[in-house]
């Protein structure tokens, strides 16, 4: 077995410790920037839906500011975002490089995308449900948690899966500022030193992550759709 593996992917077998380290770095970046983006994106998405044109706390000013800021950030390519955030990252995390330094740009790259997706998911809620809840004496906070969020769990899971997958893609790019991870690993060896087997293995690793996220998502969606 081992000799066979050595034969088909000699470079990978040479660097298994580094492969595991890169995998862990990718998971680390995805996990922390994912959790933080999830919370912030969800909050912004909720504010968008609440202050929006059909919202329960309509506010044209807040809505249009958020709306424009999101559009602005979504139109900046991630590589440029990475570079332009270096001073801010240094200020916040103390270091602009390494796995830790990659988290802030990843959040900036993910939150606007996710907030917009959350807004779309929540907007699917039939307005009649909101009205019924208000007619039953539900408070605005209650409407958000008991109607908007509770009733759109399957859609929220779906957009969270999509965002997580695109986040894994972004972590590969974050390797460019020394963030490490699988993307960085593949570029350093697979690309720059022409060790094709490394490229294939990293692709397979990332594919596995995507598949796991997708299937967990599908299970939750299935369980929460009635």
């Amino acid at each position: 077995m081992e000799s066979w593996l050595n034969e088909i992917m000699p470079n990978v077998m040479n660097k298994t410790p580094e492969l595991w380290k890169s995998t862990q770095q990718t998971l680390y970046m995805t996990f922390y920037s994912g959790i933080i983006s999830f919370v912030i994106g969800l909050i912004i998405g909720i504010v968008l839906i609440a202050t929006g044109p059909k919202g329960i706390a309509k506010n044209k000013l807040i809505y249009s500011i958020l709306d424009k800021v999101i559009n602005l950030f979504r139109s900046i390519p991630f590589v440029i975002l990475l570079a332009s955030l270096i001073p801010l990252t240094r200020l916040v995390v103390g270091s602009a490089i390494g796995t830790k330094g990659a988290i802030l740009p990843l959040i900036f790259g993910t939150v606007p995308f996710y907030a917009r997706q959350v807004e779309t998911a929540l907007a699917e809620i039939n307005h009649g449900l909101v009205e019924a809840a208000i007619a039953m004496g539900t408070s605005p906070i209650g409407v958000i948690f008991r109607v908007y969020l509770k009733e759109s769990i399957p859609s929220l899971v779906r957009v969270t899966v999509i965002t997580s997958i695109s986040l894994i893609g972004l972590t590969a790019m974050a390797g460019a500022i020394g963030g490490g991870g699988l993307g960085d690993f593949a570029i350093r060896y697979g690309h720059q030193r022409n060790q094709a087997d490394i490229t294939y293995v990293t692709v397979i690793m990332m594919l596995l992550m995507v598949m796991i996220i997708q299937s967990v998502g599908n299970i939750i969606i299935k369980k929460t759709t009635h």
């Binding site: 039939n126 809840a133 009733e151 769990i153």
Partner: peptide, 30 residues
């Protein structure tokens, strides 16, 4: 007003039941 609304029931043309909740949970909502 919210307290008062609890004493005014309302029903609609399209029912407006919560799809993610079963019959028990819908009725228990208020």
């Amino acid at each position: 007003l919210r307290a008062k609304r609890k004493k005014i029931g309302m029903i609609f043309q399209h029912f407006n039941l919560f799809a993610s909740r079963n019959v028990y949970q819908n009725i228990a909502y208020p």
